[in-house]
Design a protein around this nucleic acid. Structure first.
Lengths: 360, 360
DNA sequence: GACCTTTGATGATGCGCAATATCAAGGAAC
DNA sequence: GTTCCTTGATATTGCGCATCATCAAAGGTC
């Protein structure tokens, strides 16, 4: 059976012809606006829908957005491949939240793929929002952006263009404010420090990789604030280290100084510290506790045995879409939208009360 | 600093005005087509680009695709949520392949979310392609479909409408042929049986759940064919069983009959069989080998210790997009497109040579 | 010098749709 | 019975762009 290959997709005009009404009515009906400027009786509405079904009409996205209307499509732009081959999908949790919220708002999701074939150095290429100087996101009503490896200049340009978007993760640009969702890292960090202090730890150390994002800095601030708030808790300056190569000599020094709990940026780093400690003959957590302030998995899978704060990615994804919806609903309000999700805590197996006496 | 909220984005007309050329020339130049029907001298080209830069012009994609026809968007429709909360993403591997291929074709992906708020029985609701009788996929150039829980009637309607789409997974409809990608289950199964036979097994048993998809039936056919091909290999009829509740009495019977290798539909089922065998005091694989013909994870994570065929999901995803591209490139050829990807084999730890003597 | 070809441009048209302005008819108010 | 409002529609415009038909002028050929 040869399919009745229609040479052309049916348009509103076709529907109008079949239903014997004017195109305006069709437009109004299919958009549910048939009691505003353009009105239609219940009978007419039914006739229109009937014709729509008969012809298999569906709106042309491009035309709809060209004419100024919405297209109910939310863009999702990631600076890395959304579905990476080489590692656990970093975006998966966020996408769960995004999809859920989008479904609630009755929107579909447009996932932007990278522009291929530029710079073939083999490494993971960063994607770009602009292609030939053109904002590719424009086909959507607005977009949610994710990714660690963002291009700040591009973001600044995007803010300047007035295109509605929300970043998942706090991003502060030098010029121009943007909308984002973040997590309450500072207070969650304070909570974690409280917990550490309650267990009896008195000397902590913060190890951080040299590259710092807003989130990292926020956690660091929360950390020091909490340390100050706790009488008796001491923490020296932050130690900038290579998270992959554990500096065992640094560890030795710290332990000698009476540090009983090491706090790191992320769980991978914490895992490295644990191995380093083990190599030094220290048991974790009996002799030394190790705690991570972030669960970012980097290129390796996140280790669930590490006691760590958990970024509420799913919630952040949902919030981002909802902020975007607000942005679209009230475009005249140009103020950047902000939302904060609540961090979780993974108990893990790397934090307990400090040893009665200093080890060694 | 208030963003320079431009009331209107510059258009080609603005550029044309500034460059003192006609809009046609601008269009031609920015698209690099200025030596076809519309021509422009090198000088003019420079003037146009200069004006483009000065104004910060960027083309409106909606208008572009409206005027052009295609929109370079491939739909991705899944009958279940793309990013499920409650289980490992079944779709993740397929999506990797889809994204890769889409990137190669310079297409973006439109992920359809479900239509919310119909039937709130709490359970996972199947999504629908048609909403109010309208094919929602039509906003894209064509679509890739996935999912176990498909609606055959809908698919038949979709085929009838002539909308270009490709299913990931073999689907045979009673009426009308559709395009799909599948895996070489039959030959992969034969390969697996060869392997089993080469190890010395002589009596096998096939356990299958009652619900059978095309893939399952194809593997079953391949299985029996391979059994026939091997002189000395015996396999009784297929045993329809509940994959979750292991029938230990059936296992006992089989082993008593001299079966040394049980073949199942999928790895979960195989895992159940293994536990059942263990409960009977049989060691796997020393006393009894267990092999799965599929790695479908169902609601539980796939067990990597099970010796199993591996569905090449990533490759299938990529193939699907490429088939779709062909469908779009040659629409006059209405024949359904088909592709077959090569199954992998996971060695696992549940298959070895049969015991020298029958156990027990 | 008559004819053709190439170069360099212009203008008109329409893609499918939303929004606005307009209009006809029927009823209620006074 | 004139005015006014409501209901139910239609006609028109233009979003920004690509494409096509057209055209003027310059250069080349015999």
């Amino acid at each position: 059976m040869a399919s009745p290959r229609s040479p052309r997709r049916p348009t509103q005009a076709d529907v109008a012809r079949l239903a014997e009404v004017s195109p305006s009515v069709v437009s109004a009906v299919v958009n549910g606006r048939h009691d505003g400027a353009v009105r239609a009786s219940e009978q007419t509405v039914q006739r229109v829908w009937e014709a729509v079904r008969r012809l298999g009409y569906s709106p042309n996205l491009a035309a709809r957005s060209l004419a100024g209307g919405r297209n109910n499509i939310v863009g999702v732009f990631t600076y890395e491949a959304v579905f990476p081959t080489d590692r656990l999908s970093f975006f998966h949790d966020s996408l769960i939240g995004i999809e859920e919220a989008a479904e609630e708002l009755d929107c579909h999701l447009l996932l932007f793929t990278g522009s291929r074939g530029r710079g073939q150095d083999g490494g993971r290429r960063r994607r770009s929002i602009y292609k030939d100087g053109v904002n590719t996101l424009q086909v959507t009503d607005g977009a949610v952006l994710l990714g660690q490896d963002e291009d700040r200049e591009e973001l600044a340009a995007l803010v300047g263009s007035g295109f509605p978007f929300v970043y998942i993760g706090r991003r502060e640009l030098g010029s121009g404010e943007m909308s984002y969702v973040t997590a309450d890292y500072a207070s969650a960090t304070r909570g974690m420090v409280d917990r550490i202090a309650d267990l009896g730890h008195r000397r902590l150390a913060l190890l951080r990789s040299a590259i710092a994002s807003e989130a990292v800095l926020e956690r660091e601030a929360g950390y020091f604030e909490a340390c100050r708030a706790h009488a008796g808790i001491e923490s020296g300056a932050v130690h900038l280290v290579d998270p992959d190569a554990v500096a065992t000599d640094l560890l030795t020094t710290l332990v000698d100084q009476g540090v009983t709990c090491v706090v790191t940026d992320d769980s991978n780093h914490a895992a490295s510290v644990r191995s380093g400690a083990t190599r030094l003959g220290l048991r974790v957590p009996e002799d030394l506790s190790v705690v991570a302030l972030g669960d970012f998995a980097g290129s390796r899978p996140d280790d669930p045995t590490i006691t760590s704060l958990l970024t509420p990615r799913q919630e952040m994804g949902g919030q981002a879409v909802r902020l975007l919806a607000d942005l679209l609903a009230r475009p005249q309000d140009t103020a950047p939208r902000r939302a904060t999700a609540t961090c979780g805590v993974r108990t893990g197996q790397t934090l307990q009360a400090p040893p009665a006496r200093r080890p060694r």
